[in-house]
Simulated assay, not measured.
Amino acid sequence: MAVDVLASHKPTFRVNGEDKPSEDVKDRFRKLNMFHIIYVMESLSSMASQVRNIRAVMITAMYNAPVTMDNYYTTKVNHGMKTA
């Protein structure tokens, strides 16, 4: 998925239902590391609903990963501490 985005010549990508400039999306994708990918895969595996457009979901999830990952793991840790 990341290769498709980074190699694309499209002027925009649809992220979160909005058209974002291609260079902004590519910049965000270049910042991804293995921890972001693991986070996206964990998040997708816990989704309860059926995904119709996996490409759109993956682009959105990967685009948002650098800004949402810390909150996700902090919430998981805090939740785990309350139940322990």
Rank of each mutant, 00 (worst) to 15 (best):
M1T: 09
A2M: 15
D4A: 13
D4V: 10
V5M: 05
V5F: 10
V5D: 13
L6E: 11
H9Q: 15
H9S: 14
K10A: 13
K10M: 12
P11E: 11
T12A: 09
V15C: 08
V15R: 00
N16L: 08
G17R: 06
G17N: 04
E18T: 13
E18Q: 13
K20C: 10
S22H: 10
E23A: 13
D24A: 13
D24R: 12
D24P: 05
K26L: 05
R28D: 08
F29C: 09
R30E: 14
R30C: 13
R30A: 12
M34V: 07
H36F: 11
I37G: 00
I38V: 05
Y39W: 10
L44R: 01
S45F: 05
M47G: 09
A48I: 07
A48Q: 14
S49G: 11
S49K: 03
Q50D: 10
V51Q: 03
V51N: 03
R52G: 13
N53Q: 05
V57I: 07
V57F: 04
M58Y: 13
M58A: 09
M58P: 09
M58W: 14
T60M: 03
A61D: 00
M62A: 04
A65Y: 07
A65K: 07
P66Y: 14
P66N: 01
V67S: 13
V67E: 06
T68K: 14
N71K: 15
T74F: 06
T74S: 04
K76V: 02
V77N: 02
H79T: 14
H79A: 14
H79E: 15
G80F: 04
G80R: 00
T83K: 02
A84I: 04
A84P: 05
A84N: 07
